[in-house]
């Protein structure tokens, strides 16, 4: 789910990271802020999202995202707990960032993005074919070996394929 946001450049994770504040959507059914992201999330059965910003040395570096299949799943106590956890994680990130150069951090971030896309595609394949996690990963690897493309590229195609088609015809004219 995070990968979808990275791919489309929109969603609560992206906004929480960019703006450095928490985004809470109690029910995606009533959410209009992210028109590309929301249908993808709903198609995967997600109903509520809580995104808390993560910082490293005072700079935004990402967000802690918690998803639920149940609308209204995150009450005030849950939001407070997520905020505390994100704050603690930010403290650790700041300490770790002092010991890592930017190249290493960049490679880790890239690996995390790749991993997220693959995990998301695994979930889609598990749902589509009623198979377990390892079998879904095998399908991705098989496709990768056949096409000589990295697993993450095929995974991205699968994630994109879950998006509803855009309406390309003329807008209906009011009578």
């Amino acid at each position: 789910m995070d990968a979808s946001q990275y791919a489309t450049g929109e969603g609560p994770c992206v906004d929480a990271s960019a703006e450095g504040r928490r985004f809470h959507t109690a029910s995606l059914a009533a959410e209009a802020r992210w028109p590309v992201f929301v249908p993808t999330a709903r198609a995967l059965g997600i109903s509520a999202i809580l995104s808390s910003p993560l910082t490293g040395n005072g700079k935004p570096v990402g967000a802690l995202n918690i998803y639920s299949r149940h609308a209204g799943a995150f009450g005030p106590a849950d939001q407070q707990l997520a905020a505390v956890f994100a704050s603690e994680a930010s403290t650790l990130l700041s300490a770790a960032a002092g010991d890592m150069d930017e190249v290493v951090i960049g490679r880790l971030e890239s690996a995390l993005r790749t991993r997220h896309v693959i995990a998301l595609a695994q979930g889609v394949l598990m749902e589509r074919h009623a198979i377990d996690e390892d079998s879904a990963h095998r399908l991705l690897r098989r496709s990768s070996a056949r096409t000589r493309r990295p697993v993450h590229q095929g995974a991205t195609d699968i994630v994109v394929s879950t998006r509803p088609p855009r309406h390309t015809g003329p807008a209906p004219h009011p009578q």
């Binding site: 490679r107 690996a111 991993r115 695994q122 990963h137």
Partner: peptide, 8 residues
């Protein structure tokens, strides 16, 4: 390891 980790 990084490549293995990125694959999941």
């Amino acid at each position: 390891w990084l490549r293995y980790f990125a694959l999941g």
